[in-house]
Amino acid sequence: MLKQYSFEETAVQTFDDKTSLAMRTEDMQVFYGSNHAMFDANLAFPKNQITALIGASGSGKSTYLRSLNRMNDGIATVTGKIWYHGVNINEPGVNIYEIRRHIGMVFQRPNPFAKSIRENIVYALRANGIKKKAELEERIEQSLKGAALWDEVKDNLDKSALSLSGGQQQRLCIARSIAMAPDVLLLDEPCSALDPISTVKVEETLLELQKKYSIIIVTHNMQQASRISSQCAFFHLGHIMEYAPTGTMFSNPQIPVTQDYIAGSFG
């Protein structure tokens, strides 16, 4: 039986004006029909850092993440404000395609198209209006290098993406996202379908990528959060309970629910 915790008692950090932020949500609520799935989400994400969203299944972390680039459009109702470069992108007039070009997303299950490795990346670039052969080639190489996949596939770019291993497929998905030069990369449990060795490779890739991108990653795996993230937010039943630098969160959690989760009492 899950203990009842007060949703009033939270410890969510805020940042001063000196910290430059990649994006921020203000009083965000998410509803699936009449089901209230996310309550008053206020989080800010510092630039060029990895922020991990942790919590048990059904805590709302994926729901939260998918709202950030409007992937919940048509699936859920999202209210409140999502600030990105000083613009509230949770408004009707905003161009969602443009948003997703700047805020890329990688999913839990590797989902390359049934096309060649090259075509997978070219698809994203063509969708963004890049058509020149030379630029396409350059971006393919850069993005595959960025995702640490180049050395493994450079001789077989025309091979089907589905012939790659799960970890390679996931890095191809990362490459596909960064080919469009986004600012923010959202990752929804990118390693949960991967074996430990592939996971290490993806994690190394992410640590390298944070120099250029701001990364927000949902993870089931607390060790992963502690290995790679700088900030960590803990979600519980649709509420953000605690948000702190990762070191602090794991060594000195502030409130009982976080303490119990990190100690492994539930989740």
């Binding site: 948003i99 997703r100 070009r101 890329g104 997303m105 999913f107 198209f113 698809y123 469009m180």
Partner: peptide
């Protein structure tokens, strides 16, 4: 497939 495409800004 659909999600992958939409998330790429298509």
């Amino acid at each position: 497939y659909k999600e992958a495409s939409l998330a790429l800004g298509a």
